[in-house]
Every structure is written in structure tokens, then in C-alpha cells.
Design a protein around this nucleic acid. Structure first.
Lengths: 227, 227
DNA sequence: TGCACATTGTGATTACCTTCACGAAGCCTG
DNA sequence: CAGGCTTCGTGAAGGTAATCACAATGTGCA
């Protein structure tokens, strides 16, 4: 049973969503073909991904929807509440806080941190805002293991260091700074400006190709945004 | 001169940023080593990426900062204003609108679309809000080539179809629906929930590894977020 | 002027995913 | 109960992107 890669984990959460839809529609079984079509991947890819779960379907019936859902849940989702903290409740940070609140199973943003004293101690979407200087203390106290960085680029490394020192092992980074973290700490970067530039670039290229009447092959629909 | 891949384009925009910083500090030349260190990639990677630009450095001096900046700009950034439209000015959409306004060179969000009539015709960050039903018309009129989708999942495909029909060739998709688009249209997906789940997963795995005292090898800091 | 050194540009290699393709296995039909 | 069909599980092959490693090149110094 191979170790799940970054991409595999992403797809598994996707299958999970598809399976929930199928279950809501009353489907009890699903073939890899069906999952593949709904998730826009190949059937072989689906089977490979499910392989890492150690879950088995049966030829002729495919995968049992309920069983597979539970298997994915126990594999990729936290068994008990996993706590998250967010640094920066500006423009993007606020939107993320609102977006994530109550949305992921067993994942909860419990604290936010800010440099701006005006926001200290306020409750924002049910989440207390602290000074970034108290981050270490609060994170340890609350048992936070995941951090979101949504602060200006220049402060990102400082926040990351604070996070790591306090025991955080996974960081979702929206700053454009590539973070330096010790081995074993997972960082996923989402660089909105980079993604925007890239989309604009390929849109232009596609238009050019059209003019040149060449078969217009863009890297096509898909990628995950990270740095 | 190889064709630039999705990842290469991303890194080039990153080098561009690094180079601008260097220029601001008065540096006139830079070695691939230096750029690599600042962008957290390998020197060979930097040289390969620069290769696709057709730009050459000199052994002994490395790359000329000013020249390389201009070369990257002319390669990845629009030569003249490229117009963007955004569908959905809810939580995330609004944050994006605010985030992107005036931030990228020659890239401007000129219109927004909504299903909610209350917002029609309002100006939001200098950008007029239209009914989604008028999207085709407005997009053609304004010459928009890039679209951002920040609507609820269920509406994403409809918006994408409208965008594509109107001539949009690149889409930045924040909905969790994998979009079906014709070949030649570039889609970059940013699935925030998926990224969050993934970070949480690898954070847990890292903690577990620590307990198991195995060498804790996470996929490590880096990835792009797309579907 | 010529030598020694550091860096570039790039063919070759490696690593990682994805896809192919096929043996094994369960179900349905007759 | 047996045959045929469809699907799963997975070793092998293929593709793409990153890394290695080295020849070529230009610089500064003696």
C-alpha cells in the first residue's frame, strides 16, 4: 500500500464529495468509471487512488458508496477536532475565516492573530483575535496544529517561525514569500497573484494560437494552486 | 526553445518579483544561485526556466537584472491592458476584487457579475456589477479575455459556459466543480477547502511520524493549487 | 597575454505520476 | 451450473518535470 502523495490526497477529498452526492441520490454502488467522469480524471487514476486507502470494490458492483465514504473520511479527515489558527484578518484573511467557519468536518479555526491592536480581543466569526506576539502561547494552549498565513509578505516568515516554534505542523500560506520551515512541516502555498498572471498568460497564448490556426493546446483545465 | 509549462510560468513571475527587489537594492547582476536561493528552488531550475525565455546570461557575471526583468515582463505579462471579469461578489469574490484591484501590471478587473439583483449596477471597487445574464454581452463589449469564477458550486458550470461562449480563454475557478470547457481554454482551479484538508492531513501525518520517530518526510513546502 | 576559476547552457539521468493493459474475480443469464 | 461480460487491482510502460553533471565561455588577475 503506497504512501499517499499530495495529489492523491486532493483527489480523495474530491471523490468524497462526489460520493456524498451519489449517496444523497440514493446510489449504493459506484464504478470507477462513474467517479472518474464526475471528478474529471481517468478511471485508472481513481482505482490507483483508492488503492492507497486499502479499500476494495468488487468487480460487477464496483465500490460500495457508503463504505468508501467512510474509508476516505477515516483516511483523510481528522478523527477528532483538529484546530486551526489564522494570522492576518485583513482582506483575504477575513474572507477565509468566514469561508472555513463550520465548513470542514472536524476542522475549526479557533484563533486569529493580528499586528493591528485595534482588532485585539474582538470576536470575529466566533474566533478571538490576539496579538501576533501572543501566538506561541495561544497556539500551545489551544492545541492548534494547523496555521493559515494571510499577512503581508514581509511578515510571513516571522509568522511562520512563530507557528513552527509553537508546534504547528501544517501551514496554508497566502503570502508570496516562500517560507523557510524545518523538514517535516508541510506548507501549501496559494499565490493568487501568480495564478492570475498564469491564467492571463495562457489566455493570451490561446488567443494567439487561434490566430496562428495551430491546434491550440493549452496545458488544460487543471492544476492545484501552490508555490 | 522549449514551450513554457504551467509551472515554469509560475516560477518566472516569482523570479520577476525577486529581481525587482534586487534592482531596488541596486544590484545590476545576479547569478542563478542567488535567484534560486531567493525563490527556494535549485539553480539548475532557474537556468532551465530562463532558457525558455531565450535570454542569456554570461558566465562570470550571471544575468543582468534589468534585462532579465524586461525579458520576463515581455514574456509573461500582457503588453497592453488585458481585461478581467469576475462572477460572484460574495465573500470570496469581494476579497478577490479588492485584492486584485490595481495590483497586477496591465491586468484589470473591469466587470463583475451577480445573480443577486440587489447588487446590480452598483460600483464595487470601481467595477460595475451586472446581472449574470448580461455577462456575454458585457464581456464582448469590454473585450474581456479572462474570467474569475467565485460563485456557488452549482452555478459554476453555467458561468463557465457563458464565459467561454463570450470568448473568454482563461478562467480562474474558485468553485469546487471541475469545469467542462473546450480544448484551448485554460482553467486554473483553486480549491480552498481541498487545500485546507490537505494541510490538515499532512500536519497530522507529520505529528504521527514524529511519534513513530521515523525521519518525518512530508511532501515538503511547495505545490500549486489547482484541480 | 595567458591561466585559473566560477558560472552558464544543456544533454543525459532520475524521480514522480499517470496511463495502459491484462489477469483475476464476481455476477447474471440461460 | 457454466459461460460470458464487466469491472477491479496492479505490474509495466510512458510522459513530464526536476536534477545532475559537464563542456563551453568569459572574466579578472598575475
Amino acid at each position: 500500500m503506497a504512501r499517499a502523495s499530495y495529489r492523491t490526497i486532493g483527489r480523495l477529498t474530491h471523490y468524497w464529495r462526489v460520493l456524498r452526492d451519489l449517496e444523497a441520490k440514493g446510489q449504493t454502488h459506484a464504478y470507477s468509471h462513474l467517479l472518474a467522469a464526475k471528478a474529471r480524471v481517468t478511471a485508472a487514476q481513481v482505482r490507483r487512488d483508492i488503492m492507497v486507502l486499502g479499500y476494495s470494490g468488487t468487480p460487477a458492483r464496483g465500490y460500495e458508496v457508503r463504505g468508501l465514504i467512510e474509508c476516505i473520511e477515516s483516511y483523510v479527515f481528522p478523527a477528532s477536532e483538529q484546530r486551526v489558527a489564522i494570522a492576518g484578518v485583513g482582506n483575504i484573511g477575513l474572507a477565509l475565516l468566514k469561508f472555513f467557519t463550520g465548513r470542514r468536518p472536524n476542522l475549526r479555526i479557533v484563533s486569529s492573530f493580528e499586528a493591528n491592536p485595534e482588532k485585539f480581543d474582538r470576536l470575529i466569526y466566533g474566533c478571538r483575535c490576539h496579538s501576533i506576539d501572543r501566538a506561541g502561547e495561544v497556539i500551545r494552549q489551544e492545541g492548534v496544529s494547523v496555521g493559515i498565513i494571510a499577512v503581508p509578505d514581509g511578515e510571513a516568515q516571522y509568522v511562520a517561525d512563530t507557528f513552527v516554534d509553537a508546534g504547528i505542523r501544517g501551514i496554508l500560506n497566502f503570502a508570496r514569500t516562500p517560507l523557510r520551515v524545518p523538514a517535516g512541516v508541510y506548507v501549501e502555498n496559494i499565490d493568487l497573484a501568480m495564478s492570475m498572471d498564469r491564467v492571463a498568460f495562457f489566455a493570451r497564448r490561446s488567443l494567439k494560437k487561434e490566430h496562428a490556426a495551430s491546434p491550440a493546446k493549452a496545458p488544460s483545465a487543471n492544476k492545484e494552486s501552490n508555490s
